Computed example of a mutant assay.
Amino acid sequence: MSAVAWTAVGSLTVWMWLLLGQGFFWRTDQRLPSRADPARWPSVAVVVPARDEAEVLPMSLPSLLAQDYPGEAEVFLVDDCSGDGTGGLARALSERYGGLPLTVVTPGEPEPGWTGKLWALRHGMELARRRKPEFLLLTDADIAHEPDSLRELVAAAGSQDGFDLVSQMARLRVTSTWERLVVPAFVYFFGQLYPFRRVNGKGSRTAAAAGGCVLLRAGAVERARIPESIRSAVIDDVSLARAVRRGGGRIWLGLADRVDSVRPYPRLADLWHMVARSAYAQLRHSPALLAGTVLGLGLVYVAPPVTLAAGLLTGDPVAAAAGGAAWAVMAGTYMPMLGYYRQSLWLAPLLPFTAVLYLLMTVDSAVRHYRGLGAAWKGRTYARPEAAPEP
């Protein structure tokens, strides 16, 4: 066979393994597990780190304050040195909408060795723990919750022998053309790296969470020393889940039906920055892993359409057949995610194009790192951030 045919066959082989051997990552049926309501609803403290979030706070904070929760609950919003009046706006929204009690605190700039979000979480969690809550809900300032969200999360966690961490990946906004092309693929690639079924399996070593919505049992927080044990992590959600699992905790991760991100990413530049700021940290700042990722993405996502076209043009039936089959499997595994996001299934064949964008974003993330720009976010730059610290 020709080199093109061997490449096509290799890509098809990888896709058959991804289809059947990677925890069925492409399925979208990992939803919040249903449990019976507890006899007594435990107390919950909701901690919201917020830095310059005045644009989205009116769409998210009222949904938290309006939670229909039968037990004791209150909200702690940490104004992380915002320059747009986030803290004052939060107080005004609380006065306007009422609902759960709201406390706003400003901790000041982070100490060396801390990322801004985890520094904010530290102060919010310390304040919340004075109330001795049984659960902590960590949720981002751009996340809107349906009125029964907190009730459903706590019920899913179950009793003392239930889950120590329950996390839902909020449904991201998909409105602009670039959001339609990039956002569903972002969640698809995340699931490929961290198959939800494996994360949720007993005894599994795979650990991950979605930082926008994480319910934690207070005892697990103490055992895992959160957030101190992960204070420098840029990819804080995966680091948090690993810390809980190392502490002997059970974790669950799935897709959300009633938890949504209201943050817009209308331009490609917005989405590019979202991915590039932490992509190289995910690769542990390793040039070898970066090279392997580039080659892997090329073989898995770019090779199928290229080898199909080459096979048709040169009259190589093996290359054309294997390349076409690999592309078909790829598109088929992407369709469930497109369905979850209520997008046209005709976007599935465009996944190779989107993968090339992610490849370029990852390379750009490495370039930024070596230029000393690191993970820049809202006016802060972490020149040498950690991805997910090991013990």
Rank of each mutant, 00 (worst) to 15 (best):
361 M>G: 12
374 G>Q: 04
318 V>R: 11
323 G>R: 06
343 Q>H: 08
356 V>L: 15
308 L>Y: 13
366 A>L: 09
350 L>M: 11
358 Y>T: 01
316 D>K: 08
363 V>D: 03
372 G>S: 09
306 V>M: 12
334 Y>K: 04
344 S>A: 12
345 L>P: 05
328 A>D: 01
326 A>G: 07
330 M>P: 01
309 A>S: 12
328 A>S: 11
306 V>S: 04
331 A>L: 07
365 S>T: 04
373 L>V: 13
357 L>M: 13
378 K>E: 14
367 V>M: 14
327 W>V: 01
337 M>N: 01
371 R>F: 11
357 L>N: 00
329 V>Q: 03
349 P>V: 07
333 T>Y: 04
374 G>K: 08
376 A>H: 13
377 W>G: 01
342 R>G: 12
321 A>N: 07
353 F>I: 15
365 S>P: 10
305 P>Y: 01
340 Y>P: 02
336 P>F: 12
367 V>Q: 11
361 M>F: 15
355 A>K: 05
360 L>S: 05
312 L>A: 14
308 L>P: 02
351 L>I: 10
312 L>F: 10
364 D>M: 06
376 A>N: 10
336 P>Y: 12
311 G>T: 08
334 Y>S: 02
375 A>R: 08
371 R>S: 11
354 T>R: 02
375 A>K: 09
354 T>K: 00
332 G>C: 09
353 F>V: 15
357 L>R: 00
315 G>L: 08
339 G>V: 05
339 G>E: 14
332 G>R: 04
358 Y>F: 15
324 G>N: 07
347 L>N: 07
343 Q>V: 05
316 D>C: 01
308 L>C: 07
309 A>W: 12
317 P>Y: 10
335 M>H: 03
347 L>S: 07
344 S>T: 13
332 G>Q: 05
312 L>K: 10
340 Y>T: 00
319 A>L: 08
352 P>N: 03
360 L>V: 14
369 H>R: 14
332 G>E: 06
373 L>Y: 12
324 G>P: 07
311 G>P: 02
326 A>I: 01
343 Q>E: 15
325 A>G: 03
345 L>T: 13
375 A>L: 08
327 W>I: 00
378 K>S: 11
369 H>M: 13
337 M>C: 06
345 L>M: 13
335 M>S: 11
346 W>L: 15
374 G>A: 09
365 S>M: 09
343 Q>F: 09
371 R>H: 12
379 G>F: 05
350 L>S: 11
349 P>E: 05
330 M>E: 13
361 M>C: 14
345 L>C: 06
310 A>N: 00
321 A>F: 15
342 R>F: 04
354 T>D: 03
327 W>G: 00
355 A>V: 03
362 T>C: 08
379 G>T: 08
343 Q>C: 14
341 Y>I: 00
334 Y>M: 14
354 T>H: 00
310 A>T: 10
321 A>D: 07
331 A>G: 12
318 V>E: 05
361 M>D: 11
341 Y>G: 02
319 A>I: 06
309 A>H: 02
361 M>K: 02
309 A>I: 12
315 G>C: 07
312 L>W: 14
355 A>L: 08
348 A>D: 01
359 L>T: 15
349 P>L: 06
306 V>H: 04
345 L>I: 14
314 T>N: 08
316 D>I: 06
308 L>E: 02
364 D>W: 15
323 G>K: 04
341 Y>W: 08
311 G>L: 10
348 A>W: 06
372 G>L: 11
310 A>Q: 09
325 A>W: 12
317 P>C: 09
